[in-house]
Write a protein that binds this DNA or RNA. Structure first.
Length: 678
DNA sequence: TGCCTCGCACTTTTT
DNA sequence: GTGCGAGGCA
């Protein structure tokens, strides 16, 4: 229950300091989330602050969800009404939905994520006659995104002359922004940039939100970039009841423009602010903590702190060396089985953490093979699949007919004989007439150079979409409407027809059906659910708490797989830190970019400190890359961990070459397990 | 005009 | 292993 005396003195000081700026420097595992939740509890129950005056901002949906959960547990659901605990992006969208018309966008704007963004960048590149080969769209988008995160508008973007990508990006940026606007769409970076613009340019809007959120808390403050920093500064300017929590050692978003300076300079920004340091670690064993401390102290530019614990030493860290990535996966899974049996644990006590999402594949396969349940966190996976994007694009067009990226996706899906040539012609015409692509489809009769049967097909498509939009204007039963729409479109038949492998087709059909399930789950949860709301959640990757799939998986006992970035803020009794090799951790790209490896080291630090009871680090001698077996070197961070903390293990030479052999080995393993259990 | 197949180049991290 | 663009064929 809610009792401030259960906190240690600095924790309590932080929770009780409610008026005026507060900086909490919280080391890993120092009970940071506990402080934030107790602080909210204190505001609500002791200071009698209205719930809807409280705002807590985090970076990931997962962190926001967890915080909501913990606050509800502490004070009860009913007391939380109106409180906003969300990510920067969700908060931005909330503010924009109310007043974006002041910036010349319509209220039903779409949110463009990576693939839509790339589509627009390519289009813009074509407009400046840049061939897609030399400069790939991703590099251009990267530069544009960097400018946006720094709040630099197209007319103030100054490319460096020695960087061809950046020069081209400078040309593309204004066109890209224009195209977005024409689609009534904003991209993920716009969410923050436009919100800041709105607040800066419209004092009455700023006033509204300043009055609304009198008590503001920001988690992981070390990861804020320039635009997020300004966003929060604006909101907090009036009442200055701003509490920021962070740890410079866990700053891992420098690549996204995050500036550790924001947390290091907080005391300068808010003179007379209270500073609280949390240095006692309640999470990990002495061994794990010592390893982490040894690694991180190789970073020079940091606020000196010494994390300590009074819990015991614990088990040594296991270092497992595998022959290759396949064996790495099987050794990890084998160990999970063993530890689980030996200590009577749940699968959810284990996490496998990796540097890059692509590393998950081998582990997924192995877990599936052993019939062990797992949850894969992050890595756009589901909504990035082609068939899902295609089907979803119908909903996007219905919601916002100006969304050209979505419109272009569906115009010939399922195949209806409207090919690239026709679309190109219509698009040209729409530019000449400066009317919208959707409108041009309806007026295809006026366009020359398109033959009659094709015109008829285009008109049929136009009728189909406008008819569907009509249907969705009625409220209620969204899932039912989507189901009927997909059936009428014949998406299922199209997938079976065009995909040779029946199993693949089946899987894709199931994925499309999954959209309907997610929709149903969303409707169930949110009263007055709307299509916009659903699509917004999808774009902000905030869908896992209502989708049908995860509802089944939620609370299910499963091993967690995720990237090191996603793992920040979380903890697990048993952690497997895998792929501990040069070029993975630290990552090759991070070193090429002329950058420092300090951020990679912090990432490593984050990984180690996720573990409570036991840490296993694994690496491979060889790894398959583009089908070739390459030799690997151990990560340089390995040398930074004192040898006395580590126990070394070698992978067996026993390797299954064929599926039969694999099956035999598996059977053998299960037999041994059963023998032990019996 | 539309569709299919082949080849090439890339795989950091998140909202 | 994937997704894009180009080029050739129906």
């Amino acid at each position: 229950m809610f009792d401030l005396s259960t906190l240690n003195p600095p924790q309590r000081a932080a929770a009780e300091h409610t008026e005026g700026p507060l900086l909490v420097l919280a080391g890993a595992g120092s009970g940071k989330t506990r402080v934030i939740t107790f602080r909210i509890g204190h505001l609500l129950l002791d200071r009698k602050v209205r719930a809807d005056s409280i705002l807590a901002v985090t970076f990931t949906n997962k962190a926001a969800g967890e915080m909501k959960e913990r606050v509800r547990e502490l004070v009860g659901r009913s007391r939380c009404k109106g409180m906003v605990i969300s990510t920067f992006h969700s908060l931005g969208v909330k503010i924009l939905r109310r007043d974006i018309e002041r910036l010349g966008y319509k209220k039903n704007f779409s949110i463009y994520t990576t693939s839509d963004q790339l589509g627009l960048v390519r289009q813009a590149m074509r407009e400046v006659n840049a061939d897609g080969k030399k400069h790939d769209a991703e590099a251009i988008l990267w530069r544009i995104s960097g400018w946006k995160n720094g709040l630099i508008p197209p007319d103030r973007a100054l490319p460096r002359y020695d960087d061809p990508d950046e020069l081209l990006a400078g040309d593309v940026y204004p066109i890209y922004q224009r195209l977005l606007r024409a689609c009534n769409a904003i991209d993920l970076d716009d969410i923050i940039m436009l919100t800041v613009g709105l607040l800066q340019g419209h004092p009455e809007v700023l006033e509204h939100w300043q009055e609304r959120f009198r008590y503001i808390m920001v988690d992981e403050y070390q990861d804020t970039n320039a635009s997020q920093y300004l966003f929060i500064s604006l909101l907090a300017k009036k009442y200055k009841n701003l509490c920021v929590v962070g740890d410079d050692d866990q700053s891992i978003y420098g690549w996204r423009g995050a500036d550790v300076g924001n947390i290091l300079d907080f005391e300068k920004d808010y003179p007379g602010c209270r500073v609280v340091k949390l240095e006692q670690n309640y999470r990990s064993t002495g061994t794990i903590l010592e390893a982490a401390n040894h690694v991180i102290r190789n970073n020079v530019k940091r606020k000196e702190k010494r994390l300590w614990t009074d819990s015991g030493e614990g088990r040594p860290i296991d270092l497992v060396t595998a022959q290759d990535d396949e064996e790495e996966a099987s050794l990890v899974v084998e160990r999970i089985q063993m530890e689980r049996y030996r200590h009577n644990l749940a699968f959810s006590d284990f996490a496998i953490l990796y540097r890059t999402n692509s590393q998950s594949r081998a582990f997924e396969e192995q877990l599936r093979f052993e019939s062990i349940p797992y949850v894969l966190v992050g890595g756009m996976q589901f909504y990035e699949r082609k068939e899902v994007k295609d089907a979803l694009s119908y909903l996007k067009v219905i919601d916002n007919p100006l969304d050209e990226q979505a419109l272009l996706r569906i115009v010939n899906f399922p195949r209806r004989g409207i090919g690239d040539g026709t679309v190109l012609r219509i698009n040209q015409w729409s530019l000449e007439q400066s009317c919208h692509l959707m409108e041009a489809f309806g007026r295809v009769g006026e366009i020359e150079g398109i033959n009659e049967p094709t015109r008829e097909k285009v008109l049929a498509f136009h009728r189909l979409v406008t008819g569907a939009a009509e249907d969705f204007r009625r409220s209620g039963d969204l899932a039912g409407r989507v189901k009927r729409l997909f059936a009428r479109l014949g998406i299922e038949e199209e997938l079976y027809r065009t995909i040779e492998e029946p199993a693949t087709a089946r899987r894709k059909v199931e994925n499309v059906e999954q959209i309907i399930n997610s929709m149903a789950g969303y409707e169930e949860r949110i009263p007055g659910a709307t299509l916009s709301g659903f699509l917004e959640k999808v774009s902000l990757m905030d869908e896992d708490r209502f989708s049908g799939k995860d509802k089944k998986e939620h609370g299910r006992d499963a091993v967690t797989l995720m990237s090191l970035h996603s793992s920040k803020g979380l903890e697990f009794p048993f952690v497997f830190l895998v792929g501990f090799e040069e070029e993975i951790l630290p990552h090759k790209k991070s070193m090429e970019e002329g950058g420092t490896i300090d951020e990679e080291r912090r990432l490593c630090y984050v990984g180690i400190t996720r573990a409570r009871r036991h840490l296993t680090i694994t690496r491979c001698l060889h790894r398959k890359k583009y089908g070739k077996l390459l030799e690997r070197q151990p990560s340089r961070f390995l040398e930074e961990i004192p040898e006395r903390l580590v126990q070394f293990h070698e992978g067996g030479a026993k390797k299954a070459a064929t599926e039969e052999e694999q099956e035999a080995l598996a059977q053998d393993f299960f037999a041994r397990m059963r023998a032990k259990l019996g």
